[in-house]
Write a protein that binds this DNA or RNA. Structure first.
Lengths: 105, 105
DNA sequence: TCGATATATGTTAATGTGTTCATATAATAC
DNA sequence: GTATTATATGAACACATTAACATATATCGA
């Protein structure tokens, strides 16, 4: 039997495992969670993120690159500033669910 | 304004951040994903998990302890065997969503 | 009590991760 | 062109993580 839409196979194929673990790994860090949670509300420049969350600019930039590689965020330029926003509705929904889950426990 | 049920604060409180990142970290490893995915279907003994997924017994045991500490799995004893099953419906639902998400991308 | 089986645990080595500092690049205004 | 501001990048370090091996513990049956 094919197992295309119905994921109850005994084991997953390696590509699926890779993507899923990579994405959860992205969400498995306090700094990245805070950044994504901020981007929930609004688009932000790198400096806005750094100042709002009190994290060094280079740290924010490194983590944004990480999130960008996974297509979890995108940006647009405006002068010398880059405005970042989230780029994966589904993953953001999953993040929101986990935050709600944590708040109720 | 209070921000109890409505999580769109600029920043999250540190305990929420900790729980959320810990839980995602648990899901951010290929071995643990495979184990949890197997437990989706059915309760399994440690050996069953190790054999089905072709992972060493000690590795499975270590990862199960990890998942147990986060209350993501539970077990019952039957003779010398321990039968593990999942113990957090909500997190399992989140895992399933991410797997489906990965399959459609 | 002893042997067999199932599982857990301690240790170690290799690898990966996150932050920092220093510096480079890019866009803009002058 | 230069200065200024915003952001990215590279290197280095401390720390965490993973899997493997060896060994310990626990349950059961004889």
């Amino acid at each position: 039997m094919e197992d295309f839409e119905n994921n109850h196979a005994q084991d997953l194929d390696s590509e699926t495992i890779f993507i899923v673990s990579q994405t959860f790994k992205a969400l498995g860090d306090p700094t990245r969670i805070r950044i994504l949670n901020l981007l929930f509300t609004k688009e932000c420049s790198v400096n806005e993120i750094a100042e709002t969350l009190d994290i060094r600019q280079s740290t924010v930039s490194h983590q944004l690159r990480f999130l960008k590689n996974l297509r979890l965020v995108k940006y647009r330029r405006e002068g010398t500033s880059l405005y970042y926003s989230h780029d994966d509705e589904h993953v953001m929904l999953i993040l929101k669910q986990m935050i709600d889950h944590a708040c109720h426990s």
